[in-house]
């Protein structure tokens, strides 16, 4: 509602409206390129395979300084240093695993975007699964309880219906006999 209201107020009408809409869109689009900015280093690769491996490694390695970016995304000097190192190591013939080990030896597991499964990260990796299982268990228990309750209700129903019938029968016998009841 709150969003719809101002939209109605400024609803473009006629030529001026269209003009402002266009200007606004133009402004928005002119802002887009700054969002899509990426780091393009002037790296030379001796072959396409190395370039692909570089892309992959720079994607999975995390910038130690900025933390929420991988090194290909980050403008931090340290990320640039690490990109240079990855490039250098690739051309020195290191394989991916060795390069990752090289980084981990210096910056710890932290430098990996996907943390390895070990004693410290069990909770991180398996915690969500355990939580989902607990959730499922709770749902199952709730459903079962509800079913039992429903069965019990039904049982109660048939019992009370019988009783009700009995009472009604008595009443009709009574009222037809002595006509004491007002209704």
């Amino acid at each position: 509602m709150a969003i719809a209201f101002p939209l109605q107020m400024s609803k473009p009408s006629g030529l001026t409206g269209r003009f402002w809409t266009r200007s606004f869109l133009l402004l928005m689009f002119s802002l887009l390129p700054s969002l899509a900015q990426a780091n393009i280093d002037a790296f030379e690769f001796s072959n396409e395979e190395l370039r692909n491996r570089y892309q992959h490694l720079a994607f999975i390695l995390r910038c130690p300084k900025c933390q929420n970016q991988n090194i290909i995304d980050s403008n931090a000097p340290i990320a640039s240093d690490l990109r240079i190192q990855v490039h250098r190591l690739l051309h020195e013939g290191f394989d991916d695993e060795q390069i990752i080990d090289f980084m981990v030896a210096r910056y710890g597991d932290f430098v990996l975007y996907e943390p390895p499964v070990n004693r410290l990260t069990y909770l991180l990796w398996y915690g969500p699964v355990i939580l989902v299982m607990i959730g499922l268990l709770v749902v199952v228990i709730m459903i079962r309880n509800r079913k039992q309750q429903a069965n019990a209700d039904e049982a109660m129903d048939s019992q009370s219906r019988e009783r009700l019938n009995q009472v009604l029968k008595q009443k009709t016998v009574n009222s037809s006999g002595k006509k004491k009841s007002r209704r």
């Binding site: 130690p64 933390q67 981990v104 030896a105 210096r106 910056y107 710890g108 597991d109 932290f110």
Partner: peptide, 9 residues
């Protein structure tokens, strides 16, 4: 401090 990370060394 989320910036604090243990040194690997």
């Amino acid at each position: 401090d989320p910036r604090e990370m243990p040194s690997a060394l």
